[in-house]
Amino acid sequence: MLAWSRGTGVGQVARLHHLYLTVGPARFRVASTWRQPLDQLAALYKDYPASQDGYADFTVRLEPEKPWRRYIRPSVHISGDYWLPDAAPLPLNQSLLAAEMGMNLQMALGWRRHLLLHASSVEKDGKALLMTGLSGSGKSTLSAMLAEKGWRFMGDEFALLNPDTGMVHSFPRLISLKNEAIAAMQAIVPDNRFGPLMKDTPKGDIRHIVPPLDSVNKMADPAKPALLLFPRFGYDPALRDMGKSEIFVRLTQASTNYVALGEVGFRALTMFVDTVPVKAIDYQSADQAEELIDGLWGELS
């Protein structure tokens, strides 16, 4: 018998550079045609646990949209184990953003060990504060700000709800700041924790911050969800109660894998909604938000 199928042969696609990253419970293998995004990731994630054994939960790929786009007006196409058919490519100077989007995409479409809530989260005394809302609600900025004021940062993109224990697990990737939030955070976070400024991305100007070292070191520690907020930026400061059915429906919309988990997701979410206090919160400045949050947190038993 011929050894047909072994060996390499002509028509191989270009070789990829790669890097391993562990964020919370998820291990990523990021492969890229270009070194640039990997060098940036390596620098920004230098304090994260290094994976030595080669295992990965997900592979992310960053490749030219067409072969010639490796050199001519390079454009980065995001794919991997899980991918979306209509994902728009990004220019090479936004390849760090592409890598982050690629990792988020794997989590959103492929992660099944937790119910994923599109929410930021911070922890104090073993209890977690979650913030969810539409883009522009300020949930990411609020979590970044609280992380500089004594809270442990757990994540600004996904809160991972364990369906068996009801605990929230940390997914503390880089904090993604947009537009005005960049200048606001520059006032309180040292320069050496900032990534490159990426202008005019599909989401506006973006700059990443490395989370505080403490939150990276404790990224394996879960916390008990104690309060969920729906922040809204730009309105007079106010707190409102919300009905459980509204909360439930909004969280199904805020979850990327609620449907994919089937009954497990339903049970996890009903348990969450039944046990965790919730408030809608309007604010016009970070100070106002902090004051409201401190007040609510103090009232928790």
Partner: peptide, 14 residues
């Protein structure tokens, strides 16, 4: 068998 360990399709001509 035209797929590599990154999950990419290779062997474009084939």
């Amino acid at each position: 068998l035209a797929r590599d360990g990154w999950g990419r399709e290779n062997r474009k001509f084939t």
